[in-house]
Amino acid sequence: MHFHPTERIALFIDGANLYSAARSLNADLDFRKLLDTFRQKAILVRAFYYTAVIEGEEFSALKPLVDWLDYNGFTVVTKPVKRFTDAQGHTKTKGNMDIELAVDMLEFAPHVDHMVLFSGDGDFRRLVQAIQAKGVRVTVISTTRTQPPQIADELRRQADVFVELNDLLPDISRPRPAPAAPSARNFEIERPA
Rank of each mutant, 00 (worst) to 15 (best):
M1S: 15
H2I: 13
H4M: 10
H4R: 10
P5R: 03
E7A: 08
R8W: 10
L11V: 09
L11C: 06
G15K: 01
Y19V: 09
S20M: 15
N26Q: 14
N26R: 15
N26K: 15
A27Q: 01
A27W: 03
D28M: 14
L29T: 13
L34C: 02
I43D: 04
I43H: 09
L44C: 05
R46M: 11
Y49S: 06
Y49M: 06
A52N: 07
A52F: 10
V53Q: 06
E55Q: 12
G56Q: 08
G56W: 09
K63P: 02
L65R: 09
L65V: 10
L65A: 07
V66K: 08
D70P: 08
Y71T: 12
N72A: 11
K79V: 11
P80I: 09
V81C: 07
K82W: 14
F84M: 03
T85H: 06
Q88C: 12
G89F: 09
T91Y: 08
T91L: 13
T91K: 12
K92H: 12
T93Y: 10
G95A: 01
G95K: 00
M97Q: 03
D98A: 03
L101W: 04
L101S: 01
A102S: 13
V103N: 00
D104W: 05
M105Q: 00
L106H: 03
L106P: 08
P110C: 04
V112P: 04
V112K: 01
V112S: 01
D113K: 13
L117I: 11
S119L: 12
S119W: 10
S119N: 09
F124C: 00
R125D: 06
L127T: 08
Q129W: 14
A130V: 13
I131N: 00
Q132L: 03
K134Q: 14
K134F: 09
V138T: 09
T139R: 04
I141L: 07
S142W: 10
T143Y: 11
T144N: 05
P149W: 03
Q150R: 15
L155R: 01
R157F: 12
A159K: 07
D160S: 03
V161S: 06
V161P: 07
F162P: 04
L165F: 05
P170S: 00
D171F: 14
S173Y: 07
R174Q: 12
R174L: 15
S183W: 02
S183M: 03
F187I: 08
I189Y: 05
I189T: 13
E190S: 09
R191H: 13
R191T: 12
